[in-house]
Design a protein around this nucleic acid. Structure first.
Length: 204
DNA sequence: CTCTCGATTACCT
DNA sequence: GGTAATCGAGAGC
């Protein structure tokens, strides 16, 4: 048994998420996502994120106003916003906002560091293909067994799913780009953050 | 390697 | 009825 340190790490406080989504998206790079599953703790380092705003962000789900499926984004920061899309995939966000009515940070990729075997099994791919296990928002939720049932879950409390401190990653190792996959406007906003040259980050 | 396209379903208009 | 913050298979170069 190697990295026992995660066991005594407390979840990040809600104050960290009570800021502009862009600031939170940058801050989350290098932090650890912890998933408690069947007595095991799956852990991954966050290596790719994207910020989404409220009514004024045309690419955000919150753009259309509050609905039954996006209401978590309009609630308090520090909670998980999980949605289902393309008929196949769940995506995990953290609600993040300063003063705006809505906002969130999409977790797009993780670097697996603990219980990798279980993650690979959840994905149905060989354990040796570590880089592919949690690369992409739909893939990471599958690897971590995250579904709509975790929508609204508090990520600042030690439980089924939470985020802890990790290793600080300096600005020289973090790249910025336009967001991926959005079809509406909003591409001019450079709200995507990722670790340079990390194999667990999505292409494009 | 890059590119195209189909899968599949909840939700909103 | 159209669409979506995706993924992976398969074709083509």
């Amino acid at each position: 048994m190697v990295g026992v340190d995660e066991d005594c790490m407390d979840p990040l406080a809600r104050a960290l998420y009570s800021r502009e989504p862009v600031a939170v998206a940058r801050e989350l790079i290098g932090k650890r996502l912890v998933r408690t599953l069947s007595g095991f703790q799956l852990v991954g380092v966050i290596v790719e994120t994207e910020a989404y705003g409220g009514r004024k962000d045309p690419a955000s789900h919150a753009c259309i106003g509050i609905t039954n499926s996006n209401k978590t984004m309009f609630g308090p920061p520090g909670f998980a916003y999980v949605y289902f899309t393309y008929g196949n995939h769940f995506c995990l966000n953290v609600v993040a906002k300063a003063k705006a009515e809505a906002g969130a940070v999409l977790i797009r990729a993780l670097e697996p560091i603990r219980e990798i075997e279980m993650m690979a099994a959840n994905r149905g791919i060989p354990e040796r293909e570590v880089a592919r296990i949690a690369r992409g928002p739909g893939n990471l939720t599958k690897a971590f067994s995250i579904t709509k049932s975790l929508d609204g879950h508090d990520l600042t409390t030690k439980g089924e799913l939470y985020i802890t401190e990790g290793k600080a990653i300096g600005d020289d190792m973090v790249a910025v780009s336009a967001r991926i996959g959005i079809r509406k406007e909003g591409l001019s906003r450079l709200w995507r953050f990722y670790v340079k040259e990390n194999p667990c980050v999505t292409r494009a």
